[in-house]
Design a binder for these strands. Sequence first.
DNA 1: CTTGGCTTCTGAATCAATTCAGAACTAGGA
DNA 2: TCCTAGTTCTGAATTGATTCAGAAGCCAAG
Lengths: 347, 347
Amino acid sequence: MARVTLKTIAEAVGVSRTTVSNAFSRPDQLAPELRQRILDVAEELGYSGPDPAARTLRRGRSGVVGVLLTEELSYAFTDPYAVAFLRGLAEIAEISSTSLLLMAWPDHDSAEAAVREAIVDGFIAFCLDKDHPALEALRQRRLPYVIAGEPYLDGVPFVGVDDRAAAHTVASYLLRLGHRRLGVLHPGPAGIDLADAGSFGAVAARLAGFRDAVEEAGLSWDDVAVQHAIHSREGGRAGAARLLDLHPRPTAIIATTDLIALGALAAVHDRGLTVPDNVSVTGFDDIPAAGEAGLTTIRQPKSEKGRTVGRLLLDDGLDDAPGGGARRILMAYELITRSSTSLPPEF
Amino acid sequence: MARVTLKTIAEAVGVSRTTVSNAFSRPDQLAPELRQRILDVAEELGYSGPDPAARTLRRGRSGVVGVLLTEELSYAFTDPYAVAFLRGLAEIAEISSTSLLLMAWPDHDSAEAAVREAIVDGFIAFCLDKDHPALEALRQRRLPYVIAGEPYLDGVPFVGVDDRAAAHTVASYLLRLGHRRLGVLHPGPAGIDLADAGSFGAVAARLAGFRDAVEEAGLSWDDVAVQHAIHSREGGRAGAARLLDLHPRPTAIIATTDLIALGALAAVHDRGLTVPDNVSVTGFDDIPAAGEAGLTTIRQPKSEKGRTVGRLLLDDGLDDAPGGGARRILMAYELITRSSTSLPPEF
DNA sequence: CTTGGCTTCTGAATCAATTCAGAACTAGGA
DNA sequence: TCCTAGTTCTGAATTGATTCAGAAGCCAAG
């Protein structure tokens, strides 16, 4: 049996397709009795209502924004950072009764296809890699989109924190405490170019912020021990071990992320040393585990970030031409001092 | 300037629309050189790729399932129960690279419109009221859908816990401890009909489970003090106050939800009595606050429920005719005994 | 009696793709 | 040389609605 459409009903009732369409979408355009008769026949024939795909095709708006997270869709409900961000975004979305399409794709490469297939009015990209294929697909779709957290691309609306300034804050906090021998742990490429920090990822911006603080304190960046570390607890542990082997030993280890910092804490304990008496350690992000571990770190306003991203896309983005007045919003951050930092041991 | 479509490109290159379509969707159907030329021209003209709305209209599948929560979209990322449920659902969805459409609607009544507008292959309804307008809209869309938690509707696939059996478990736990004077708090209608528990909501099922246990213990349900309570902490407090005024006073208060039970705890303290020495209190659901308050309650497998719902819709649902082999899956539950229950005071 | 203004309804064009049967061409084997 | 098979491309139909200009009918005012 063929599917029931407007046409089926029009023929059954003996009116035009237009009239049946109006019965559903514009009740004021036809006599109430006729409308009721059409609705009755529609129900009788088992009509599902106007097909939303056809309607969207004609109308050109769907009332949905696509949200690009990582490969794993469940990440949206697992990572506390993501949950808080999405809560803020959802608060804004519901105001304009916009639905959120949490997008899934089987593997890294098919993200492109996912972006192409999504029936949405705009996108939000949450912390994608700088060279993620989805970014190119996003550009090609020519729909408005906002990037949250990472990466910053020229001409694309962006919401994040000023990583460089935040990094400056945490580093100068250590310097003010009196630390002079610093070790830095970062997951970026070995010969990362700080001159180019603006267009680089968050890692480079954070390193640049550290350097700013170091030079401001009258020290040289060359005297700082910069060590690569894989972005995981274990990576941080291994990287920190290298730093602790140096003579003289650094009195403070500055990590570019909490995860690495947590590994550094472990490495200090491995050596039989204590934090903060022998070595101070700082992180970045304030993930929940940082609080438990007493890690001094930089906190970002997670839900507020989601709300800002939502407003940027829904209030400005959808009306303007894509990339029109590309804005770059930097959220406030906060230095959270906990028990992993203190005066250097000499004092 | 008019929008760039397949036709625009076809004319620019000098081939048919079909060929351009194939260049994007079926690369094996045309010569590689021609395909490249088409792609180049498309990029040059600023083509956004095949419009997914048109494609979905023609193909009839969208790869999206709609998720109906409450009015507030941010609830999805606020309530820990919802977060856990959605995490489980997302795990299943990502396997078949299905995206989740978290749906928003401005008010209670416009839920219907939201259901009608959604471009999806199926729906999941999460804990809606028995008479929520979205349910009727869901039926009319004639797409496969699964109901999670509540309500159970004849012929609609359902995943939940066996509220009646779970309620039986908690009540007989109290009875085994020796409690004989019970008070029950529920948010349902005053004269709720237990005979009809099957088609009623979860409240009636839970009450029926309590009754089962009471009668099994050789007592009469008429001897149990059944008290209405508004579904909130305050409601539970007020309702429990009534029960505590009775002579003889109940030695145990069984609440149909944790929220009400938490109110009951407060009411006991208001009287200068202690839990569990003077009165035992039980809840239902195991919300996070229940753990903090030491409330004995029934725990449901939240993520597993989400996974089960996902499988039911994605593995079975989307292929079958809607409502075909309607299944009703009841998840395992667990009695969590904490410090709000003990032997009755006489002992 | 005509004109103007309503309300109610219709026909045809449009939205942007996909799909299917088949045309044109090339190449290879008998 | 003819027949078959394969590749590459095309035209027309199809997907299910919305939209717009306008037609028909009716009533009241001039």
